[in-house]
Nucleic acid binder design. Structure first.
Lengths: 192, 192
DNA sequence: CAGGTCATGTAAAGCGTTACATGATTTT
DNA sequence: AAAATCATGTAACGCTTTACATGACCTG
């Protein structure tokens, strides 16, 4: 098995998955059924590193069906409309191909706290300290949320569990990095 | 009823700064002069936590001037067009207000490696390991880039320097977190 | 004189959130 | 009976990248 690049020849006729398609495919494989379902679970789990909104999810579900990666069937609960989605074989393949292809792994961070610190020469020492403390507070809050998930997380499925562990360690370390900065600033200025 | 946005209340008439406005204001305060200049420096420094493209920068510079936060003057170098921007007092104030306001500190991460790990129950153990190793490789590469910046970074201006330190520590810890996951997987499967 | 850098910009497309709108069902 | 949750969707808007287009200046 050589390192097969996405050949234009055959088999790769499929358009690349959109970002939201990736979560949805995964969530459907995970047993999630409706758009609502997917959204709830995203908000409980992946949101820290991969968010999605209804405005993306519902249209994308339809697109996935058009593309033959998912199949929908109406399963109303009483008189309440409800559409259940399942992966097709093509969908399962697409998910697997994406998981197995190490290509173009997106990584993107938008951290306003870091941007503020970067420009903090335009602020007073006290304001700089406030920026640092603000970041610490926010990351601590995030850590609490992650730990809350941890508490209720069965170790049953390794994927989510391992991911949570990485997220927790990353966040702990981020807090430490910011705390080190705080210490540095306090030492320099001798401030409280 | 009209969608009332918090505008016409005098005291803080200024519309909120767009994301790109924040980098630009900071960069101008930092002594950067042209759009090109701003872009080069962003790519060398903040890009890891706050990116910006020409397609945003040039229009935003004009908007900032319209809003009275920046002033432009043509300073061609020879026959080559060149527009130099400077902060106005209002611009300096806006920058400072943003730095000092702890409100709504955006933090957003998009990490495809984590998403893959999350869904890796749909992959084989070997593929899961490959996902983890891919993440490690990518973060190591980023760390190298950060260290390269560090080498050439004068400690002169504390803001950028402190930010770089935070970034380096964060990245180191992220690598460790992923390596711990790799170890865990190797222990479980007894794989190479 | 070729290739790199300086310098400016635009158009189209993609991605994403927010806010709105609707109504059924379940829980308190 | 009210409030929360389940469930689906759209329209408007905002942000961002990508790809294109142009041309001057500098360095080897």
């Amino acid at each position: 098995m050589s390192t097969r690049r996405p050949d234009t020849t055959r088999a790769s006729t499929e358009a690349a998955l959109t970002p939201t398609a990736k979560v949805i495919l995964g969530m459907l494989a995970f047993g999630k059924q409706t758009g609502y379902d997917v959204k709830q679970f995203v908000d409980k789990t992946t949101r820290f590193f991969w968010a999605a909104s209804y405005g993306q999810i519902y249209p994308e579900l339809r697109r996935l069906e058009e593309a033959g990666l998912a199949r929908s069937q109406p399963e109303p609960s009483g008189a309440r409309a409800r559409t259940v989605y399942t992966l097709t074989d093509a969908g399962r393949t697409a998910l697997h191909d994406w998981l197995a292809s190490g290509e173009d792994t997106a990584w993107e961070l938008r951290d306003e706290g870091m941007l503020r610190l970067f420009f903090s020469d335009s602020a007073s020492p006290d304001e700089r300290l406030a920026i640092v403390r603000g970041s610490i507070a926010r990351h601590r809050h995030k850590l609490e949320q992650l730990r809350a998930i941890e508490a209720g997380a069965a170790e049953g499925s390794p994927g989510p569990y391992l991911t949570l562990q990485v997220g927790i360690r990353m966040t702990e370390a981020t807090i430490e990095a910011w705390e080190a900065t705080e210490r540095r600033l306090r030492e320099q200025t001798g401030k409280e």
